[in-house]
Simulated scan of single mutants.
Amino acid sequence: MSQENLAPNETMQIHEMLNFKTICMTTSKMMEGVVFDQELKALLEKDVQQSITSIAELQNLLKKASKLR
Rank of each mutant, 00 (worst) to 15 (best):
M1K: 09
M1Q: 09
M1Y: 10
M1N: 09
S2Q: 09
S2I: 09
S2C: 05
Q3W: 04
Q3S: 09
Q3A: 06
Q3C: 06
E4Y: 13
N5S: 09
N5A: 09
N5W: 07
N5I: 13
A7M: 10
P8W: 07
P8Y: 04
N9Q: 10
N9D: 15
E10L: 07
T11W: 01
T11R: 11
M12R: 10
M12E: 15
Q13K: 11
Q13N: 11
Q13C: 00
Q13I: 03
I14C: 01
H15G: 00
E16H: 14
M17H: 07
M17L: 13
L18M: 09
N19Y: 10
N19P: 03
F20Y: 15
F20T: 13
K21I: 08
T22G: 09
I23Y: 06
C24W: 04
C24A: 12
M25F: 01
M25V: 13
T26G: 09
T26C: 05
T26V: 07
T27G: 00
T27L: 10
T27F: 06
S28D: 11
K29R: 14
K29T: 01
M31P: 02
M31L: 14
E32C: 13
E32L: 12
E32P: 02
E32D: 00
V34W: 08
V34C: 05
V34D: 04
V35R: 01
V35A: 05
V35W: 00
F36S: 15
Q38L: 14
E39S: 12
L40F: 15
L40R: 15
L40D: 10
K41I: 03
A42Y: 04
L43V: 04
L43Q: 15
L44F: 14
E45C: 06
E45P: 00
E45R: 13
K46P: 02
K46Y: 10
D47T: 14
V48E: 03
Q49F: 07
Q50V: 08
S51K: 00
S51P: 04
I52E: 14
T53W: 01
T53V: 11
T53I: 07
T53L: 05
T53Q: 08
A56N: 14
A56P: 02
E57S: 13
E57A: 13
E57D: 12
L58G: 00
L58H: 05
L58F: 08
N60F: 03
N60M: 12
L61F: 05
L62C: 00
K63Q: 15
K63P: 03
K63H: 10
K64Y: 11
A65W: 02
A65M: 02
A65D: 03
L68C: 11
L68Y: 12
L68W: 03
L68S: 14
L68N: 10
R69K: 08
